[in-house]
Design a binder for these strands. Structure first.
Lengths: 209, 209
DNA sequence: CCTCAAACTGAACAATCCTTCATATCATCT
DNA sequence: AGATGATATGAAGGATTGTTCAGTTTGAGG
């Protein structure tokens, strides 16, 4: 079903004392900062350690190698994002289907544009690693959450719930990403967002069941 | 308007003899093959040269550095893609708006899935370089082409042609990309494609003018 | 056939940077 | 306080690889 986490990417050990947790947080934070500042190619383990206020050796006690570090950062990010989406989906249960779609768009778009630099940096950081497991797990969680949500829509019984739900998710997520890549202006972004909402609404209305 | 090509990424010299052109082609081909086979991180200049059947030095006569090589490969790819889209847009002029959208989806999806490995490899190769100029030029060309196309749609006068056109393009391109990342099965892909067409149709129908 | 510039060669250079490990410090429990 | 395992240090190793350049080959034009 979901691809398992590549064993080579697992973290080396779990922190057992308070300071170790602080260290880990510092490392994560430093990694993101440097990813944002200079991008993946410029990211060196020494720099990360320095900015985190620890030594390189410390880093290597938690991460077997650089890739594992990037992997962990993305894992964290996607986990939080998935939780936000699941939360939204739970809240929106029972609303009209169009409102559900709008809520989904709102949550996702807000999450991605809150810190655009971080979003962009993470989008770009994924190259070096085998991120398939990450993506698939994220997709599985969001699919499940949205399908469950749309199942509760009143006045609508979708002929193929799975299919409609997956289409909406893919279109919404994809549109946001593409908008990012094209560096739209704020004006264009907010306009695009409105059009996307209109599009989802029209689509849902056309799915009479 | 469009960001200019970073000067550091320009190619070093233009070929003036026939064999030089052959060399360039071989280098491009080798680059793509290795990108597909092992991904960007494993791509070394020596390997590219070897597979292209030339020496490293030759490569460096045309490309000032590795990034410029990747840049050139992507530039070529996007140029061809843009031409395909412009062609489709020209052909579809005068058709009903929904058919236009469908033609656009068809062209883009086909182009991207014809050689999925290449598509994926190029998507991933962009990390190291400043690809903004590339993306913006591509976006400008496709926006112009699609806007011109939709302007010729009968029975429809869109209240905001620019806006609708850009929305459609962003949604379509984004959806395809997202579908790629999620490694959908063939079944799911063709289903998704159908849903996307339905969505665009519904959206267009709702844009009465 | 001769000349010259274009094209090509590939060993060597230079620089980067990931990773290790022997050692030191810290926190917790008895 | 002492013992023990968890945590932290950072200089040094080692391997990779992008890039250069002095010299050779090729091809086109006169």
């Amino acid at each position: 079903m979901t691809a398992s986490v590549p064993s080579s990417l697992k973290s080396r050990k779990k922190p057992q004392q308070a300071r170790a947790n602080a260290t880990l947080d510092a490392i994560f934070e430093a990694t993101i900062q440097l990813l944002v500042k200079d991008g993946y190619p410029m990211l060196t383990t020494t720099w990360v350690a320095e900015r985190a206020g620890v030594s390189v050796g410390t880093m290597y006690q938690y991460f077997p190698h650089k890739q594992a570090l990037i992997y962990a950062v993305n894992e964290r990010y996607l986990k939080i994002l998935a939780e936000k989406i699941e939360h939204t989906c739970r809240e929106a249960q029972g609303l009209p289907a169009a409102a559900m779609a709008e809520a989904l768009i709102d949550t996702y778009w807000t999450a991605k544009t809150e810190r655009p630099d971080v979003t962009r940096a993470l989008y770009r950081s994924v190259v070096e690693m085998d991120n398939e497991a990450l993506i698939l797990e994220f997709a599985a969680r969001t699919d499940a959450a949205t399908t469950a949500m749309f199942a509760t829509a009143p006045n609508k019984s979708f002929s193929d719930l799975q299919s409609v739900s997956r289409a909406l998710v893919t279109v919404i997520f994809g549109t946001v990403r593409n908008s990012f890549e094209r560096s739209h202006s704020e004006q264009e972004v907010s306009d695009l967002r409105g059009q996307l909402i209109a599009m989802c609404r029209a689509y849902i209305d056309s799915c009479v069941g």
